[in-house]
Nucleic acid binder design. Structure first.
Length: 617
DNA sequence: GCGGATCAC
DNA sequence: TATGGTGATCCGC
């Protein structure tokens, strides 16, 4: 088998730095890449074809010039330019001997990767077109012909009318309005998007019950079985599926079809909006598709890597092969593997539901007007700690490591993380330990504070022999007894861990270090206790009784959702005994059991793990 | 193992 | 006047 394409493999004479320098930055010695950086990441998305990017970027430049954000971008651009130049210098030093050695190694690697190629599966990537905007148009048909966007402060997405002006997702609202003064900006309405997403996923399930819903508006499917079952062409199947989604939900979706997730994802962008593109399950077809594909179109190649590759005259994925020996000398093994797999058009053929992936961290962060006052920062930290606790309860987990993130007014970021003496999952602990880290950074002026929990412990899978004990504790730790803002530390860390509750705000981190030592082997018992006293316990037991017949249900998700949602303080509770369902927004009885039943029903219509997390298109 | 960076959405 | 939040991964030290 011919594994590699023959072709020009070495152009040592033409590898001069090719940093595209069209515009000169006034006042700097940068090449004109700052304009491009300021344009943002979604410039190459659909709907931008007729846009005069030079004019748009100039408006952005003028609108943001002098701001803290601008200065930060300028610094980063300068650093990157230096890094790129350094790589180009390194490239010049690579000897022919090194290249020869690398070439041998590359061929071996390619053969190694080639044997992993699987052309038996039909993978589809489905991507809703301007999803939030599309959903809003259903409620506001008069907006269809006008440029509008969805978001607040920063735009999440915008309709195609707005894109004609150069408006894009992730663009600051005030900048977007400079580019398009008549732009209408709607607030986010997540319950609506979730409901619509559920309706779409329901249809997707008919084609692949194990499809992977990445976000509200994006999913992977394996339709191999379905195509065989109905004995239909893959393009017809996907076309039917898209039409059904449009008919039943009013939302247009685009799709990519190919032998693996990587090419399917890229393909879904080609005929966007409301279109599809197929890459045959054929090695030559895949190779040809990748060959002329700009590297930036590949998921995982961002602005920085693209800059580096372009400087080495790697523009399209085919160039990866031509320059592979050089790349081998300049990049890490991980990157080389990634790039070669891109060139070969290889990718995963495994599609499984998102909730079968293990979560590695959970965090909360908040941006606000810059503050220097420690008391105010404590207040922010407290709120963030409480939010994080809610997420922990929703997901039914604790963590052994806590991270603090700060963003200075210069937009420079600082992160600190510490192992905890025991897995923690309460706001009180998040605040306590977070503050210890924060205080070490004082004095400081920040515009963002965040907390993140890692080294997670899943509290859903209960160990054996614990059921009776939990049944006993149940009355003591029901939701009603303890509001989320005042969880008793002793309830979560009973007897054995009492000593650590004595930490005060003004203690030094050194004491934390000391506490961490010698407390590892107690872990399993502590986790058992966490599980036992977890607020989820009571509801889980009830739930298990209710669902004796249905053992296929994912308990962890439904239980945790049911646990936290009714607790939410801003879920629109009124004295009339009616609340807005946090998922679908409909009015539901405020009675706990009735609400929980409704929420469960709402959630069961589609696997939503990240129920109300903000995402950009 | 930590902190900084990059990337996706 | 003014640029987000969540999660994953990689790299250098």
């Amino acid at each position: 088998m011919v594994v590699s394409e023959p072709g020009p493999k070495r152009e040592t004479t033409s590898s001069e730095p090719q940093i595209s320098s069209k515009v000169s930055e006034p006042g700097t010695d940068n090449p004109g890449t700052l304009h491009r950086r300021l344009l943002g990441p979604s410039i190459q998305k659909s709907g931008q074809d007729g846009v005069d990017q030079a004019t748009v970027s100039e408006i952005i430049y003028q609108a943001t010039q002098g701001s803290k954000y601008f200065e930060h971008q300028k610094r980063k651009e300068k650093d990157l330019t230096k890094k790129v130049e350094s790589i180009v210098q390194q490239a010049k030093k690579v000897s022919n001997q090194d290249l020869d050695a690398a070439e041998v190694r590359i061929e071996a690697l390619i053969q190694q990767y080639e044997v992993t190629r699987d052309l038996t599966q039909i993978i589809v990537h489905v991507d809703c077109d301007a999803f939030y905007a599309s959903v809003e148009e259903l409620d506001h048909p008069e907006l269809k012909s006008k440029p509008f966007a969805v978001g607040k402060g920063v735009l999440c997405t915008c309709n195609y009318e707005a894109r004609k002006f150069g408006v894009r997702s992730a663009m600051a609202e005030f900048v977007a309005k400079k580019i398009c003064p008549e732009l209408v900006v709607l607030r986010l309405n997540f319950p609506k998007y979730i409901e619509k997403s559920n309706a779409i996923r329901k249809i997707l399930s008919e084609y692949d019950p194990n499809h992977c819903a990445m976000t509200l508006d994006e999913a992977y499917l394996n339709i191999t079985e379905y195509c065989a079952k109905v004995n239909k062409d893959r393009e017809e199947v996907v076309s039917d599926m898209r039409r059904r989604i449009l008919e039943t939900t009013g939302v247009t979706v685009s799709a990519g079809i190919g032998p693996n997730s990587r090419v399917a994802k890229i393909a879904s962008n080609i005929n966007k909006p409301n279109g599809q593109f197929v890459i045959a399950n054929d090695r030559e077809a895949v190779m040809e598709f990748m060959c002329n594909l700009p590297v930036r179109k590949v998921t995982g190649v961002g602005y920085v890597l693209e800059r580096q590759l372009l400087a080495l005259n790697v523009n399209v994925c085919g160039d990866i092969y031509h320059k592979s020996a050089l790349l081998y000398q300049l990049f890490t093994d991980t990157t080389i593997t990634f790039l070669l797999n891109c060139y070969l058009g290889l990718g995963s053929t495994e599609v499984k539901p998102i909730d079968q992936y293990e979560r590695k961290s959970v965090g909360c962060e908040r941006t606000f007007r810059a503050i220097s006052d420690a008391a105010q920062m404590k207040q922010k930290l407290q709120g963030i700690a409480e939010d994080l606790e809610k997420d922990c309860r929703r997901l039914n987990l604790a963590g052994r490591k806590l991270g603090l993130k700060l963003k200075k007014t210069t937009f420079e970021q600082i992160s600190r993380q510490r192992p905890m003496p025991k897995p923690i999952n309460t706001a009180a602990d998040f605040y306590r330990y977070g503050l210890l880290m924060l205080e070490k950074e004082l004095p400081i002026t920040v515009r963002l504070i965040g907390l993140r929990l890692t080294d997670l412990v899943d509290l859903s899978h209960e160990g054996p022999m614990k059921t009776f004990l939990k049944g006993q504790r149940r009355q003591n730790y029901t939701l009603d007894d303890e509001p989320s803002t005042s969880i008793n530390f002793h309830a979560v860390f009973p007897e054995s861990f009492d000593g650590s509750t004595d930490i005060h705000d003004d203690k030094e981190m050194g004491e934390l270090d000391m506490m961490i030592q010698g407390s590892q082997e107690e872990d399993s018992s502590v986790i058992d206790e966490l599980r036992s006293s977890s607020k989820a316990t009571a509801a889980r037991d009830v739930k298990n009784a209710e669902e004796l017949q249905d053992s296929t249900v994912d308990h962890s998700m439904q239980i945790s959702e049911r646990e936290t949602l009714p607790l939410s303080t801003d879920s629109g509770e009124t004295s009339s005994g009616v609340v807005a369902c946090p998922i679908c927004g409909n009015q539901v009885s405020a009675d706990d059991q009735a609400l929980n039943r409704h929420v469960d029903w709402c959630l069961s219509r589609g696997a939503i793990r990240e129920a109300v997390k903000e995402t950009f298109e």
